[in-house]
Design a protein around this nucleic acid. Structure first.
Lengths: 242, 242
DNA sequence: TGCCGGCACATGTATAGACATCTTACTCGA
DNA sequence: TCGAGTAAGATGTCTATACATGTGCCGGCA
């Protein structure tokens, strides 16, 4: 019989640790199959409910995938999931008491770049609109926003709607917001980005990719670029947590 | 005997719905006490394990608070936060099913750099502790964390507390968390940062400054550095909020 | 008066057993 | 050869029971 860790605490936690250790060491083969509940019961000498609870919690933690009638498998790696609030740059800037302005540089039907096509699964969806907007704070450029709209969105879209300056306004005009996925990263500014944001080429920038689903449809892809001179602030006040 | 919803699905889901409905209607009084497991068993005619599972899942969802030996209570409402969620890198990495490790590189009383002093108003507060922690995902360096503790914090701080590996654990050990302010920016890695994170010097990195107030005191300053190979993603689903 | 032991009651964990549901693979018959 | 039926085995749920652990109260004793 295999040995569980001798640390203190509930049995199911020891079973979880035992399984995590074996996931990490790759001991369960390249098909990533975890022993069945019955096998684990025999191996570890605990009841099936205890094994089941350990497996269930590891599943909800994202370590495992379970398929009824088939078995338990090590879960494939997933993207990060920390919440970052939807960025509304106009509100941000106004809240600082500064003057805000947005210039629409480009507004037409265009194909997004190959890079964005690959990154955001637009290959099978023809975008109907593309806008590039430059946002200013006190007449200093702050952010470039690129926005795409999918062809399977409501067909009554016109350029009037599409030119809504802030993404938040834009989303309000479309179907109700249901889901947002954002990815934030650091990049170095290429020549055009540097020119538009009044930076030197190679300066560090923030990049914010966003996908928004309204209903079941991908509606927009936004690319934000923040100059390193500007920051996104946040303030969190839990208040009444016991 | 009270009636459970007649919808399909597992019993414990019906029990969860039953409890959520009563939370929503405020039926359980202003002290927000939920009936005990034993009472729910009598009321609903299901086994205690089923009631227990429903209560446990509602607790981990944040709807309830349970105190062993005391009882179960409706969780106080949480504030609507416009901000970046507190980053708990260890939970992040574990949620991806990856292996997490943290190495404490330095743990002693030091002055923060002049840059941090200026940025975070430490000039008038002498820090009592300083730690540098390197976080790994699957043995690849992911983040450098620097943590300072202020001298006007509770004086009974010792190195044991201070070496708590994750910031979340650290904050749990101190006074209750009341307010957090975060700033995110893009930087280029200096030589030492690049070496520690296995990057080339000058590579773009994310920088995350955080100030935390516990009570009325500044408690910590954390500097996070994410390699550009890693990203912070976010997924926001308003539909799931009851 | 004050303290402390014990009891009642709350949640937390663990087990054994039963049945339900789902998938896969195999067998047997048309 | 194909297809329906079935058996095996996997996870999912539910119950009854027992014991562990933590909290608060109350009553008796010093």
């Amino acid at each position: 019989m295999a040995n569980l860790p001798e640390t203190a605490g509930p049995l199911y936690e020891k079973v979880k640790d035992y399984i995590l250790d074996h996931i990490g060491s790759g001991a369960w083969g390249k098909d990533q199959r975890v022993p069945s509940e019955h096998e684990l019961v025999s191996m570890l000498g605990v009841s099936r409910m205890t094994v089941h609870r350990a497996l269930r919690e590891l599943t909800s933690d994202g370590h495992l995938v379970r398929i009824q009638g088939v078995g338990t498998f090590v879960a494939p790696p997933k993207p990060y999931s920390t919440l970052i609030e939807i960025v509304d740059i106009a509100s941000e800037i106004r809240a600082r008491g500064a003057r805000y302005r947005a210039d629409i540089l480009l507004l037409e039907s265009l194909q997004p770049s190959q890079e964005l096509l690959a990154a955001f699964d637009f290959a099978t969806r023809r975008p109907v609109g593309h806008s590039v907007i430059l946002h200013h704070e006190n007449d200093m450029p702050v952010m470039i926003e690129e926005r795409f709209v999918n062809s399977d969105l409501a067909p009554d879209y016109d350029k009037q709607d599409f030119s809504a300056v802030t993404t938040y306004d834009f989303l309000q005009k479309s179907t109700p917001l249901t889901e947002v996925e954002q990815v934030i990263a650091a990049i170095t500014a290429d020549e055009e980005t540097a020119r538009m944001l009044a930076l030197e080429a190679g300066a560090p920038c923030l990049l914010l990719h966003r996908r928004t689903w309204t209903g079941s449809t991908v509606a927009t892809v936004n690319r934000f670029t923040y100059s390193s001179r500007y920051t996104l602030g946040s303030r969190y006040t839990p208040g009444s947590i016991r």
